[in-house]
Simulated assay, not measured.
Amino acid sequence: MIRLRRVYDPPEPGTDGVRVLVDRLWPRGLSKAAAAVDEWPRALAPSTELRKWFHGGGSAAEFRRRYEAELAEPEAVAELERLREVAASGTVTLLTAVRDPAAAHAAVLAELLGPGPS
Score class of each variant (00 low, 15 high):
107 A>L: 03
48 T>E: 14
39 E>I: 05
27 P>L: 04
33 A>C: 03
118 S>E: 14
26 W>R: 03
102 A>G: 06
39 E>Q: 09
17 G>F: 09
49 E>Q: 01
75 E>A: 15
37 V>Y: 11
68 E>G: 01
80 L>T: 04
56 G>C: 07
39 E>C: 03
118 S>R: 15
44 L>G: 00
33 A>D: 15
43 A>L: 06
116 G>F: 04
14 G>R: 11
49 E>H: 00
84 R>Y: 05
42 R>E: 13
75 E>W: 14
92 V>R: 04
44 L>P: 00
16 D>M: 05
11 P>A: 11
68 E>F: 04
57 G>I: 12
38 D>K: 06
2 I>T: 00
7 V>S: 05
32 K>A: 10
45 A>C: 09
107 A>F: 04
18 V>Q: 01
84 R>K: 11
30 L>H: 08
55 H>W: 12
91 T>A: 14
48 T>Q: 11
9 D>W: 09
34 A>V: 04
111 E>D: 08
73 E>I: 02
76 A>D: 04
30 L>P: 01
63 F>H: 00
61 A>S: 11
82 R>G: 08
81 E>Q: 12
28 R>M: 14
45 A>L: 11
118 S>N: 06
2 I>E: 00
107 A>S: 02
91 T>D: 08
15 T>L: 13
117 P>K: 02
51 R>V: 09
5 R>H: 12
41 P>N: 03
81 E>W: 09
80 L>I: 09
69 A>R: 14
64 R>T: 13
82 R>Q: 13
78 A>S: 10
115 P>W: 13
78 A>Q: 09
60 A>M: 14
110 A>H: 11
113 L>C: 07
39 E>W: 12
20 V>F: 05
101 P>F: 10
59 S>T: 14
60 A>E: 13
40 W>Y: 11
52 K>H: 15
41 P>M: 10
53 W>E: 14
105 H>Y: 10
42 R>W: 10
107 A>E: 03
43 A>K: 03
53 W>S: 02
26 W>G: 01
78 A>I: 09
113 L>M: 07
62 E>D: 15
31 S>G: 14
74 P>G: 11
80 L>A: 13
89 S>Y: 01
77 V>E: 13
86 V>S: 06
99 R>F: 05
13 P>F: 13
28 R>I: 14
47 S>F: 08
10 P>A: 15
93 T>Q: 03
40 W>H: 15
37 V>Q: 04
5 R>G: 07
8 Y>A: 01
105 H>D: 02
66 R>Q: 10
30 L>T: 06
58 G>D: 13
99 R>A: 09
26 W>D: 02
75 E>P: 12
47 S>V: 08
63 F>Y: 05
114 G>I: 07
72 A>R: 07
108 V>F: 05
88 A>Y: 02
87 A>Q: 01
28 R>T: 10
73 E>P: 00
26 W>Y: 12
20 V>D: 00
85 E>C: 01
101 P>E: 08
3 R>N: 06
48 T>C: 03
42 R>N: 05
65 R>D: 05
97 A>G: 05
44 L>Y: 14
51 R>H: 05
3 R>I: 07
113 L>Q: 03
74 P>H: 11
111 E>K: 05
21 L>D: 00
66 R>E: 04
99 R>Q: 07
13 P>T: 08
84 R>V: 03
55 H>Q: 06
12 E>Y: 02
45 A>I: 10
63 F>W: 04
48 T>H: 10
106 A>R: 03
